[in-house]
Write a protein that binds this DNA or RNA. Structure first.
Lengths: 238, 238
DNA sequence: TCAAAAGTGTTGTTGATACACCCATGA
DNA sequence: TCATGGGTGTATCAACAACACTTTTGA
């Protein structure tokens, strides 16, 4: 029996069992310069000081895994309410040469326009093209590979690609995003057809002229409509 | 600095950070009486003594997550080399009313014929129809739901359904397994057609007469052939 | 006026679904 | 001989892939 902060007595049931350091590591995706990128840090503490790594940190006693991931994401980006999903738990004994640490990886989808790039730079973080990020510490490369696979699976069957774009976006933008994710080109007629047939995008009256003289119509993902369709058994599929 | 069992000095990098109890819980699937079932225990310690729960245990300091899951599975079933895959890590602070415990769930696919049922019974475990298992402790019902979703996704796109059947099985058996997993019936002509077209089953000369007078031909999953096809880009899909 | 990106329809092919009867055998 | 489960083929329909030209407009 011990007494906790609230003054209540607490029964300890599991004192005979080991406790282990638990960390979370975040694979933060962003879509910049028509490329899919992830946010990396130069590690500024041992072990592995100076090497590139994902953004991570230890889980505190008084926070859930999800809360820990959101906190770490917030500390680096200053953003809340970001798409964030658990990926996998890495449990090899020697994965961290310092001490034993179990790491739970999460992946996040950022709207980079919402980001204060100075804030990020202050932390020494940099955007790195997926597929071009060098050797990361520990098993972080594995985590990135896993995150990319998951991202591909999810963007195919769930309407989450929009999380990487501004709230208003054009069809060509969305197509370029998918081409960056899958590293292949899509036929633009087929892409539009399939996308618009799902009827989850709201066409706006304004055009985005930033990437062509003609301008492309802006669209917005209609989440309400998607939810309604989804309840009736509709499946997003691109 | 501390000294470990090997007499080497070890640097402790993370002493300032919290450690947490980590457990694994296994959703053990089996195919009995043409039903998909999971193996459950009456819990014999507090908290939650007497209630139904998944098979679980704490992760030891000197074992990986995967090893812990395999150990717990082995202790209950006496089986090794069982299909076992990590599912999800459950990290809410109060999920275990005893103390804070993070639980990593795994799901296993057993060939029930390999099982020593007496050994299992000695541990007080019982098979329970999926969908009919009452209230389990903590968040274990959630885990079961997650495992079933994962099983459905995986058996559709990977040749792992065979893990739930004897090495030699008939097509009608396999179809009944899939019907039990998806809780719906399949057209037997279409099922066979699609299955055999994938060309990953080896037809044997013997028949299984246990469920009909005519008898049904036995087949064996040809893993070598599957691996070869898979390397060339073939995707299993049922 | 021309370069550059946005936008649009049709056709052939392929894979999925739906569906009904004969076969082999033991009781 | 008959009841039971095993095994087979075809026709229809929907979804996907392949493909080329017109439109708009700022420079």
């Amino acid at each position: 029996m011990t007494t906790n902060q609230m003054g209540q007595t607490e029964k300890k049931y599991y004192t005979q069992f080991a406790k282990i350091h638990v960390a979370v590591d975040c694979i933060i995706f962003g879509f910049l310069e028509n490329q899919l990128k992830i946010l990396l840090l130069k590690r500024n503490f041992e072990p592995g000081m100076g090497k590139l790594s994902l953004i991570g940190g230890f889980v505190k006693e008084e926070e859930s895994l999800d809360d820990a991931a959101a906190r770490i994401l917030y500390d680096l980006t200053g953003l809340k309410n970001v798409f964030l999903e658990q990926l996998y738990s890495h449990g090899k004994i020697d994965r961290d040469p310092g001490e034993r640490v179990i790491s739970v990886s999460y992946y996040a989808l950022l709207k980079v326009q919402d980001l204060d790039h100075d804030h990020v730079k202050k932390h020494g973080a940099r955007w790195c093209n997926i597929g071009e990020c060098q050797e990361l510490i520990f098993d972080h490369n594995e985590m990135v590979v896993g995150a990319l696979h998951r991202l591909r699976r999810m963007t195919k069957s769930q309407p989450i690609g929009f999380e990487l774009l501004p709230r208003k976006f054009t069809i060509p933008q969305l197509q370029m995003l998918y081409e960056a994710i899958y590293q292949k080109t899509f036929d633009n007629r087929n892409f539009r057809k399939k996308l618009l047939a799902m009827d989850v995008l709201e066409k706006l009256e304004t055009k985005d002229k930033s990437s062509s003289k003609k301008g492309a119509f802006l669209y917005r993902f209609d989440k309400k409509r998607y939810n309604k369709l989804h309840q009736d058994g509709f499946l997003f599929d691109l």
